[in-house]
Simulated scan of single mutants.
Amino acid sequence: MKTLNIALATALLATGGAATAQTATDAQCIILGNAFAAQAKDPKGQKIAEAAVYFYLGRISNSMTAPQLKALLDAQTKTLNNENAGPTMQKCAAAIQAKVDMLETAGGKPANAATPAKPAPGKGTPPPGR
């Protein structure tokens, strides 16, 4: 894997506004997800990395400023290297999978589920607001 580039994190600043990652781990997952998505040759791996970016972007708080986010991303970029990037990304993906598993257990549908079943004949959808 190519050396991680702070430009990836900087690109996130442009789209993230005044948001910051909640934890150092979240910041690492954003950085790695973005890097792996950009460099992945395998479409499945690229999709997983992109999902990680969106998942961890969703964990960003609106209460922190862009300079705070930049400082966090800069600090976490320094902790990542070619040796720990892969295992760290695997942990990021495993955390997402755990949430998907929890959703399935709770009766929700995973993102790649089939289309919903149609109602039984004679049992239409109730009108909105009921």
Score class of each variant (00 low, 15 high):
M1W: 04
M1E: 12
T3A: 15
T3E: 15
L4V: 07
L4C: 05
L4M: 06
I6Q: 11
I6F: 10
A7N: 15
L8M: 10
L13M: 11
L13T: 08
A14N: 09
A14S: 13
A14H: 11
G16M: 12
A18D: 15
A19W: 07
A19N: 14
A21Q: 06
A21F: 02
A21S: 11
A21T: 07
Q22P: 00
Q22N: 11
A24V: 04
T25H: 12
D26R: 02
D26M: 01
A27Y: 01
Q28G: 03
Q28W: 00
I30V: 14
I31S: 05
L32T: 09
G33T: 02
G33N: 03
G33R: 03
N34V: 09
A35Q: 05
A38L: 08
A38W: 00
A38K: 13
A38H: 00
A38E: 10
A38G: 07
A40P: 02
K41P: 00
K41S: 13
D42M: 06
P43S: 08
K44T: 12
G45K: 06
K47V: 08
K47C: 04
I48M: 11
A52Y: 10
V53H: 03
Y54C: 01
F55L: 08
F55N: 15
Y56N: 04
Y56I: 04
L57K: 12
L57W: 00
G58N: 06
I60N: 12
I60R: 15
I60V: 15
S63F: 03
M64K: 12
T65V: 03
T65R: 07
T65K: 10
A66N: 11
P67T: 06
L73V: 07
A75R: 13
T77E: 09
K78R: 13
K78Y: 00
T79L: 14
T79N: 11
N82E: 15
A85P: 04
G86P: 05
P87S: 07
M89P: 02
M89Q: 05
Q90I: 14
Q90V: 13
C92H: 05
C92I: 09
C92T: 08
C92N: 06
C92A: 09
A93Q: 08
A94M: 08
A94K: 13
A95D: 13
A98Y: 00
A98G: 03
A98C: 01
K99W: 00
K99H: 03
K99M: 09
V100Y: 03
D101Q: 10
M102F: 10
M102L: 14
E104I: 12
G107H: 05
G108W: 01
G108F: 09
G108V: 04
G108A: 09
K109F: 08
K109R: 14
K109G: 03
P110N: 13
P110R: 13
A111C: 02
A113N: 08
A113H: 07
A114V: 08
A114G: 11
A114Q: 13
A114S: 14
T115G: 06
A117W: 00
P126A: 12
P126I: 07
P127Q: 04
P128D: 05
G129V: 04
